[in-house]
């Protein structure tokens, strides 16, 4: 359990990084980032076999991750940095001129860890499927992961990809939906309801797992481990992961208002008071 405790400390530090990053440039997306901390910490700290010190675009003989909802770049960047892909102090450049840490992730500036640009929603599942197909062609028995927002599922391309992955038995692939129920304009149910999401993916032919505790690190790791037992069985795998937008900062929880807004100085202090320094600030 020593490692779990370390990963929990990392989770708290990542949350500090997120609110400090968006505060520093008065822009960015803290809500979804805070909600997906456990997902990223589990994936990069425990689940994936990956090579942060020797990043290659081709990523042969390692697991791959694709972030489809690119606006939650703060959590992605923080976890990549703490995993060793690039110096943690570079988080200080987020969204600033000449940075590799663009508002939305990109390969364009050579940031290690990023293999596709994302931001315009709905594209990451197709990309992940392509990467999974190449792994099969290459005889590379590693897994491809992707993360999607629930609001993002309103994009039609997602359903093209969902159909394709099942029809073509893309079974070296574990997708996850960040099911926080909120998007910019309000509750997903009010904007454009997804209906019974589990039934939808099952009807498309996927293996679907649900995790109702997406902000519980042990639970997220258990979900990944369960999902892995379905690899290679002829179906793509979807984890519907219930999270809380803004998790860890009380005033950012229970609302969609912090989807894409940065805290001011006073709000930052209030947030950091709830998130003690664990590994040191960048």
């Amino acid at each position: 359990m020593a490692k779990i405790e370390e990963l929990k400390k990392l989770s708290t530090q990542v949350r500090r990084d997120i609110v400090r990053m968006v505060h520093a440039v008065n822009s960015g997306h803290p809500g979804g980032s805070l909600g997906c901390v456990e997902y990223f910490v589990a994936l990069y700290g425990e689940v994936m076999k990956h090579n942060p010190q020797n990043f290659t675009m081709d990523g042969k003989n390692e697991d791959l991750f694709f972030l489809s909802n690119g606006h939650i770049s703060p959590v992605y960047y923080s976890v990549l940095a703490h995993s060793g892909y690039f110096p943690v102090k570079e988080l200080n450049t987020f969204r600033k001129i000449n940075t590799r840490l663009q508002g939305h992730p990109t390969t364009h500036d050579g940031l290690p860890g990023v293999r596709i640009a994302s931001g315009s929603l709905g594209q990451g599942m197709s990309v992940a499927i392509g990467a999974a197909l190449t792994k099969k062609l290459n005889g590379d028995n590693h897994t491809v992961y992707s993360l999607h927002g629930d609001g993002e599922l309103q994009e039609g391309q997602i359903w093209e990809a969902t159909l394709y992955a099942a029809a073509n038995k893309v079974d070296n692939y574990i997708a996850t939906v960040d099911y926080n129920g909120r998007q910019i304009d309000g509750d997903v149910d009010k904007i454009l309801s997804l209906g019974n999401l589990k039934a939808k993916f099952e009807a498309f032919g996927w293996t679907v797992l649900e995790n109702h505790e997406g902000n519980n690190l042990e639970s997220v790791i258990t979900s990944f481990n369960t999902a892995k037992t379905y690899l290679g069985k002829g179906k793509p795998i979807m984890v519907i992961m219930k999270t809380e937008m803004g998790q860890g900062v009380d005033y950012m929880m229970g609302t969609h208002k912090w989807h894409g807004s940065a805290p001011n100085d006073e709000q930052l202090k209030k947030a950091l008071d709830q998130l003690p320094v664990t590994l040191g600030d960048y």
Partner: peptide
């Protein structure tokens, strides 16, 4: 090495992008 994607061109472009990762 041939992928019939059906009438879903957006997905085709995304899959093509992904296929390059690993050298195709």
């Amino acid at each position: 090495r041939f992928f019939q994607v059906g009438i879903a061109e957006a997905n085709m472009m995304g899959i093509a992008a992904g296929l390059t990762i690993g050298g195709k």
